[in-house]
Protein backbone atom coordinates (compact mmCIF):
# COMPACT_ATOMS: atom_id res chain seq x y z
CA UNK A 1 0.00 0.00 0.00
CA UNK A 2 1.23 3.45 -0.82
CA UNK A 3 1.64 6.00 1.92
CA UNK A 4 0.85 8.94 -0.37
CA UNK A 5 -0.52 11.87 1.59
CA UNK A 6 -4.25 11.92 0.93
CA UNK A 7 -6.23 15.08 1.53
CA UNK A 8 -8.67 14.94 4.41
CA UNK A 9 -11.68 15.46 2.13
CA UNK A 10 -11.92 12.10 0.34
CA UNK A 11 -11.17 10.25 3.56
CA UNK A 12 -14.26 11.63 5.28
CA UNK A 13 -16.88 9.47 3.47
CA UNK A 14 -15.50 6.42 5.27
CA UNK A 15 -17.07 7.87 8.41
CA UNK A 16 -20.63 6.59 8.02
CA UNK A 17 -19.35 3.12 7.13
CA UNK A 18 -17.86 2.74 10.60
CA UNK A 19 -19.85 4.63 13.24
CA UNK A 20 -19.62 2.15 16.09
CA UNK A 21 -15.85 1.71 16.09
CA UNK A 22 -15.22 5.38 15.66
CA UNK A 23 -17.47 6.40 18.49
CA UNK A 24 -15.51 4.11 20.76
CA UNK A 25 -12.27 5.66 19.60
CA UNK A 26 -13.42 9.25 19.64
CA UNK A 27 -14.56 9.05 23.26
CA UNK A 28 -11.28 8.46 25.06
CA UNK A 29 -9.39 10.50 22.47
CA UNK A 30 -11.67 13.47 23.06
CA UNK A 31 -11.05 13.18 26.77
CA UNK A 32 -7.57 14.60 26.47
CA UNK A 33 -8.69 17.28 23.95
CA UNK A 34 -6.07 16.03 21.50
CA UNK A 35 -6.02 17.35 17.94
CA UNK A 36 -8.15 15.45 15.39
CA UNK A 37 -5.15 14.21 13.47
CA UNK A 38 -5.15 10.56 14.70
CA UNK A 39 -8.83 10.36 13.81
CA UNK A 40 -8.23 11.49 10.26
CA UNK A 41 -5.34 9.08 9.98
CA UNK A 42 -7.64 6.32 11.12
CA UNK A 43 -10.30 7.25 8.58
CA UNK A 44 -7.75 7.12 5.80
CA UNK A 45 -6.58 3.70 6.97
CA UNK A 46 -10.16 2.45 7.13
CA UNK A 47 -10.88 3.59 3.60
CA UNK A 48 -7.71 1.92 2.39
CA UNK A 49 -8.74 -1.28 4.15
CA UNK A 50 -12.19 -1.19 2.62
CA UNK A 51 -10.61 -1.13 -0.83
CA UNK A 52 -8.07 -3.83 -0.03
CA UNK A 53 -10.30 -6.09 2.08
CA UNK A 54 -13.58 -6.84 0.36
CA UNK A 55 -14.68 -9.16 3.14
CA UNK A 56 -14.27 -6.56 5.88
CA UNK A 57 -16.06 -3.95 3.80
CA UNK A 58 -18.92 -6.39 3.24
CA UNK A 59 -19.03 -6.96 7.00
CA UNK A 60 -19.28 -3.23 7.65
CA UNK A 61 -22.14 -2.83 5.16
CA UNK A 62 -23.91 -5.89 6.56
CA UNK A 63 -23.55 -4.58 10.09
CA UNK A 64 -24.92 -1.21 9.07
CA UNK A 65 -27.97 -2.95 7.60
CA UNK A 66 -28.46 -4.96 10.81
CA UNK A 67 -28.21 -1.84 12.97
CA UNK A 68 -30.75 -0.15 10.68
CA UNK A 69 -33.07 -3.15 11.04
CA UNK A 70 -32.77 -2.98 14.81
CA UNK A 71 -33.41 0.76 15.00
CA UNK A 72 -36.25 0.78 12.47
CA UNK A 73 -37.86 -2.55 13.45
CA UNK A 74 -41.20 -1.00 14.57
CA UNK A 75 -41.57 0.80 11.21
CA UNK A 76 -40.18 -1.70 8.70
CA UNK A 77 -41.55 -4.91 10.24
CA UNK A 78 -44.58 -6.08 8.23
CA UNK A 79 -46.47 -6.95 11.42
CA UNK A 80 -44.94 -4.82 14.19
CA UNK A 81 -47.39 -6.10 16.82
CA UNK A 82 -45.97 -9.63 16.31
CA UNK A 83 -42.68 -8.47 17.81
CA UNK A 84 -44.53 -8.24 21.10
CA UNK A 85 -47.39 -10.05 22.77
CA UNK A 86 -49.77 -10.49 19.80
CA UNK A 87 -50.79 -14.04 18.81
CA UNK A 88 -52.84 -15.30 15.87
CA UNK A 89 -53.62 -18.98 16.56
CA UNK A 90 -55.53 -19.35 13.29
CA UNK A 91 -52.43 -18.46 11.28
CA UNK A 92 -50.02 -20.78 13.09
CA UNK A 93 -47.15 -22.40 11.17
CA UNK A 94 -47.86 -20.98 7.72
CA UNK A 95 -45.00 -21.65 5.30
CA UNK A 96 -43.15 -18.69 3.74
CA UNK A 97 -45.36 -16.76 1.34
CA UNK A 98 -45.84 -13.26 -0.05
CA UNK A 99 -47.70 -12.27 3.14
CA UNK A 100 -45.19 -13.87 5.50
CA UNK A 101 -41.75 -14.00 3.84
CA UNK A 102 -40.25 -16.14 6.61
CA UNK A 103 -43.53 -17.94 7.48
CA UNK A 104 -45.26 -17.87 10.86
CA UNK A 105 -44.42 -19.55 14.18
CA UNK A 106 -46.42 -21.90 16.43
CA UNK A 107 -48.72 -19.11 17.67
CA UNK A 108 -49.11 -17.47 14.28
CA UNK A 109 -46.62 -14.63 14.66
CA UNK A 110 -44.82 -13.37 11.56
CA UNK A 111 -41.24 -14.68 11.79
CA UNK A 112 -39.73 -11.90 9.67
CA UNK A 113 -41.12 -9.34 12.11
CA UNK A 114 -39.75 -11.27 15.07
CA UNK A 115 -36.35 -11.66 13.43
CA UNK A 116 -36.22 -7.88 12.91
CA UNK A 117 -37.19 -7.24 16.52
CA UNK A 118 -34.70 -9.89 17.61
CA UNK A 119 -31.92 -7.71 16.17
CA UNK A 120 -32.81 -5.15 18.84
CA UNK A 121 -32.44 -7.69 21.65
CA UNK A 122 -29.15 -9.10 20.35
CA UNK A 123 -27.52 -5.76 19.63
CA UNK A 124 -28.71 -4.33 22.94
CA UNK A 125 -27.20 -7.29 24.80
CA UNK A 126 -23.95 -7.03 22.84
CA UNK A 127 -23.61 -3.28 23.49
CA UNK A 128 -24.51 -3.58 27.17
CA UNK A 129 -22.21 -6.56 27.80
CA UNK A 130 -19.23 -5.08 26.01
CA UNK A 131 -19.81 -1.66 27.53
CA UNK A 132 -19.78 -3.10 31.04
CA UNK A 133 -16.93 -5.51 30.34
CA UNK A 134 -14.76 -2.88 28.70
CA UNK A 135 -15.44 -0.30 31.41
CA UNK A 136 -14.45 -2.70 34.18
CA UNK A 137 -11.64 -4.42 32.27
CA UNK A 138 -10.02 -1.29 30.89
CA UNK A 139 -10.06 0.45 34.27
CA UNK A 140 -8.45 -2.50 36.03
CA UNK A 141 -6.07 -3.07 33.12
CA UNK A 142 -4.85 0.52 32.99
CA UNK A 143 -4.30 0.53 36.74
CA UNK A 144 -2.44 -2.79 36.56
CA UNK A 145 -0.34 -1.78 33.58
CA UNK A 146 0.57 1.67 34.88
CA UNK A 147 1.07 0.79 38.53
CA UNK A 148 2.97 -2.45 37.97
CA UNK A 149 4.44 -4.31 40.93
CA UNK A 150 2.20 -6.21 43.32
CA UNK A 151 -0.94 -4.33 42.22
CA UNK A 152 -0.42 -5.66 38.73
CA UNK A 153 0.23 -9.17 40.04
CA UNK A 154 -2.95 -9.25 42.13
CA UNK A 155 -5.16 -7.92 39.32
CA UNK A 156 -3.63 -10.28 36.76
CA UNK A 157 -4.08 -13.37 38.96
CA UNK A 158 -7.75 -12.51 39.53
CA UNK A 159 -8.05 -12.06 35.78
CA UNK A 160 -6.50 -15.49 35.23
CA UNK A 161 -9.06 -17.06 37.57
CA UNK A 162 -11.98 -15.58 35.64
CA UNK A 163 -10.38 -16.51 32.31
CA UNK A 164 -10.26 -20.15 33.40
CA UNK A 165 -14.06 -20.35 33.20
CA UNK A 166 -15.36 -20.63 29.66
CA UNK A 167 -17.89 -17.82 29.09
CA UNK A 168 -20.84 -20.10 28.46
CA UNK A 169 -20.23 -22.17 31.58
CA UNK A 170 -19.76 -19.30 34.03
CA UNK A 171 -22.75 -17.50 32.53
CA UNK A 172 -24.74 -20.68 32.93
CA UNK A 173 -23.79 -20.98 36.59
CA UNK A 174 -24.50 -17.29 37.22
CA UNK A 175 -27.77 -17.44 35.30
CA UNK A 176 -28.89 -20.28 37.57
CA UNK A 177 -28.07 -18.13 40.59
CA UNK A 178 -29.71 -14.94 39.34
CA UNK A 179 -33.27 -14.87 38.00
CA UNK A 180 -33.54 -15.47 34.24
CA UNK A 181 -33.88 -12.11 32.47
CA UNK A 182 -32.06 -9.87 30.00
CA UNK A 183 -30.24 -8.24 32.92
CA UNK A 184 -29.02 -11.63 34.08
CA UNK A 185 -27.64 -12.44 30.64
CA UNK A 186 -25.90 -9.07 30.46
CA UNK A 187 -24.39 -9.33 33.95
CA UNK A 188 -23.32 -12.95 33.47
CA UNK A 189 -21.68 -12.31 30.09
CA UNK A 190 -19.99 -9.11 31.27
CA UNK A 191 -18.61 -11.06 34.24
CA UNK A 192 -16.95 -13.48 31.82
CA UNK A 193 -15.75 -10.98 29.24
CA UNK A 194 -14.04 -8.27 31.32
CA UNK A 195 -10.81 -10.25 31.96
CA UNK A 196 -9.91 -10.11 28.25
CA UNK A 197 -10.03 -6.31 28.38
CA UNK A 198 -8.08 -6.19 31.62
CA UNK A 199 -5.35 -8.37 30.14
CA UNK A 200 -5.22 -6.51 26.84
CA UNK A 201 -5.21 -3.03 28.39
CA UNK A 202 -2.65 -4.02 31.01
CA UNK A 203 -0.13 -5.09 28.39
CA UNK A 204 -0.74 -2.03 26.22
CA UNK A 205 -0.70 0.36 29.19
CA UNK A 206 2.52 -1.19 30.43
CA UNK A 207 4.28 -0.40 27.18
CA UNK A 208 2.73 3.06 26.97
CA UNK A 209 3.84 3.79 30.54
CA UNK A 210 7.49 3.49 29.54
CA UNK A 211 7.22 6.02 26.69
CA UNK A 212 9.08 9.30 26.87
CA UNK A 213 6.06 11.55 27.10
CA UNK A 214 4.76 9.67 30.13
CA UNK A 215 8.15 9.99 31.80
CA UNK A 216 8.15 13.68 30.95
CA UNK A 217 4.71 14.16 32.48
CA UNK A 218 5.78 12.33 35.60
CA UNK A 219 8.90 14.45 35.96
CA UNK A 220 6.78 17.60 35.60
CA UNK A 221 4.83 16.45 38.63
CA UNK A 222 1.57 15.52 36.89
CA UNK A 223 -0.40 13.34 39.34
CA UNK A 224 -0.69 9.65 38.43
CA UNK A 225 -4.48 9.61 37.85
CA UNK A 226 -4.16 12.46 35.37
CA UNK A 227 -1.33 10.71 33.53
CA UNK A 228 -3.46 7.60 33.29
CA UNK A 229 -6.48 9.45 31.92
CA UNK A 230 -4.73 11.88 29.59
CA UNK A 231 -1.89 9.79 28.26
CA UNK A 232 -2.13 6.11 28.99
CA UNK A 233 -5.85 5.58 28.41
CA UNK A 234 -6.20 7.38 25.04
CA UNK A 235 -3.17 5.57 23.69
CA UNK A 236 -4.54 2.19 24.76
CA UNK A 237 -7.89 2.82 23.06
CA UNK A 238 -7.21 1.45 19.58
CA UNK A 239 -6.57 -2.21 20.46
CA UNK A 240 -9.59 -2.10 22.77
CA UNK A 241 -11.80 -0.84 19.94
CA UNK A 242 -10.61 -3.65 17.68
CA UNK A 243 -11.20 -6.20 20.42
CA UNK A 244 -14.73 -4.86 20.95
CA UNK A 245 -15.62 -5.50 17.35
CA UNK A 246 -14.03 -8.97 17.43
CA UNK A 247 -15.86 -9.86 20.66
CA UNK A 248 -19.31 -8.65 19.64
CA UNK A 249 -19.80 -11.76 17.50
CA UNK A 250 -18.85 -14.01 20.38
CA UNK A 251 -21.20 -12.22 22.77
CA UNK A 252 -24.09 -12.56 20.32
CA UNK A 253 -23.38 -16.29 19.86
CA UNK A 254 -23.11 -16.93 23.60
CA UNK A 255 -26.21 -14.93 24.51
CA UNK A 256 -28.14 -16.80 21.83
CA UNK A 257 -26.87 -20.08 23.29
CA UNK A 258 -28.01 -19.02 26.76
CA UNK A 259 -31.48 -18.18 25.44
CA UNK A 260 -31.50 -21.49 23.56
CA UNK A 261 -30.84 -23.25 26.87
CA UNK A 262 -33.86 -21.44 28.31
CA UNK A 263 -31.81 -19.12 30.49
CA UNK A 264 -32.32 -15.45 29.81
CA UNK A 265 -34.92 -13.78 27.67
CA UNK A 266 -38.60 -14.80 28.09
CA UNK A 267 -41.14 -15.48 25.40
CA UNK A 268 -42.91 -12.31 24.35
CA UNK A 269 -39.50 -10.74 23.77
CA UNK A 270 -38.20 -11.67 20.33
CA UNK A 271 -34.78 -13.32 20.65
CA UNK A 272 -33.14 -15.48 17.99
CA UNK A 273 -31.76 -18.20 20.26
CA UNK A 274 -35.11 -18.51 22.01
CA UNK A 275 -36.91 -18.76 18.65
CA UNK A 276 -34.64 -21.65 17.64
CA UNK A 277 -35.33 -23.41 20.94
CA UNK A 278 -39.10 -22.99 20.64
CA UNK A 279 -39.13 -24.22 17.07
CA UNK A 280 -36.70 -27.13 17.33
CA UNK A 281 -39.32 -29.87 17.84
CA UNK A 282 -41.12 -28.62 14.72
CA UNK A 283 -37.99 -28.56 12.57
CA UNK A 284 -38.73 -31.71 10.56
CA UNK A 285 -42.22 -30.54 9.58
CA UNK A 286 -41.87 -26.74 9.58
CA UNK A 287 -38.29 -25.90 8.65
CA UNK A 288 -38.73 -22.12 8.51
CA UNK A 289 -39.39 -21.78 12.25
CA UNK A 290 -35.77 -22.67 13.09
CA UNK A 291 -33.93 -21.76 9.90
CA UNK A 292 -34.46 -18.00 9.76
CA UNK A 293 -33.67 -17.06 13.38
CA UNK A 294 -30.52 -19.22 13.17
CA UNK A 295 -29.46 -17.53 9.94
CA UNK A 296 -29.97 -14.16 11.63
CA UNK A 297 -27.53 -15.14 14.40
CA UNK A 298 -25.06 -16.44 11.82
CA UNK A 299 -25.17 -13.31 9.65
CA UNK A 300 -24.84 -10.92 12.61
CA UNK A 301 -21.94 -12.79 14.21
CA UNK A 302 -20.31 -13.08 10.77
CA UNK A 303 -20.59 -9.33 10.15
CA UNK A 304 -18.96 -8.48 13.49
CA UNK A 305 -16.20 -11.08 13.12
CA UNK A 306 -15.27 -10.11 9.57
CA UNK A 307 -15.27 -6.42 10.40
CA UNK A 308 -13.24 -6.95 13.57
CA UNK A 309 -10.68 -9.03 11.71
CA UNK A 310 -10.40 -6.38 9.01
CA UNK A 311 -9.98 -3.61 11.60
CA UNK A 312 -7.34 -5.61 13.40
CA UNK A 313 -5.32 -6.03 10.24
CA UNK A 314 -5.78 -2.39 9.22
CA UNK A 315 -4.64 -1.07 12.60
CA UNK A 316 -1.87 -3.59 13.15
CA UNK A 317 1.30 -1.76 12.16
CA UNK A 318 2.78 -4.98 10.82
CA UNK A 319 -0.40 -5.77 8.88
CA UNK A 320 -0.34 -2.37 7.20
CA UNK A 321 3.03 -3.00 5.58
CA UNK A 322 2.12 -6.37 4.18
Amino acid sequence: MTASPEPAGPAEPAGPAEPAGLAGLAGPTGLGRRPARPLRLLLRRLLRTARADVLAAAGAVLLLAIVACALLAPWIAPYPEDGGTATHPTEALLPPSADHWFGTDQVGRDILSRVLFGARTSLFIAVAVLGLAAAAGVTLGVVAGYAGGWIRDVIMRVTDVFLAFPALLLSLALAVVLQPSVTTVVVALAATWWPWYARLTASVAQSVATRGYVDAARCLGVPAPLIVFRHVLPNSATPVAVQLSLDAGGVILTSAALSYLGIGVHDPTAEWGLMVQQGQTLFTTDWWVVTFPGLAILVTAFAFNVLGEGLRQALDPRGATR
Binding site: V54, A257, T284, W287, V290, G294, L298, F302, N305
Partner: peptide, 28 residues
Protein backbone atom coordinates in the same frame (compact mmCIF):
# COMPACT_ATOMS: atom_id res chain seq x y z
CA UNK B 1 -10.93 -15.22 -0.16
CA UNK B 2 -13.06 -18.36 -0.11
CA UNK B 3 -11.05 -19.91 2.74
CA UNK B 4 -11.33 -16.70 4.76
CA UNK B 5 -15.04 -16.53 4.00
CA UNK B 6 -15.67 -20.17 4.95
CA UNK B 7 -13.57 -20.04 8.11
CA UNK B 8 -15.36 -16.86 9.20
CA UNK B 9 -18.69 -18.59 8.63
CA UNK B 10 -17.45 -21.57 10.66
CA UNK B 11 -16.58 -19.42 13.67
CA UNK B 12 -19.80 -17.40 13.39
CA UNK B 13 -22.33 -20.20 13.17
CA UNK B 14 -24.42 -20.82 16.31
CA UNK B 15 -23.39 -24.36 17.16
CA UNK B 16 -26.79 -25.48 18.53
CA UNK B 17 -28.48 -24.34 15.33
CA UNK B 18 -25.90 -26.05 13.12
CA UNK B 19 -26.43 -29.24 15.13
CA UNK B 20 -30.20 -29.06 14.58
CA UNK B 21 -29.82 -28.37 10.85
CA UNK B 22 -27.26 -31.13 10.29
CA UNK B 23 -29.28 -33.61 12.33
CA UNK B 24 -32.53 -32.84 10.53
CA UNK B 25 -31.01 -32.92 7.05
CA UNK B 26 -28.49 -35.76 7.19
CA UNK B 27 -30.05 -37.98 9.85
CA UNK B 28 -33.74 -37.10 9.57
Amino acid sequence: LSVRFTSMLAVSVPVFWLALVVQTVFAG
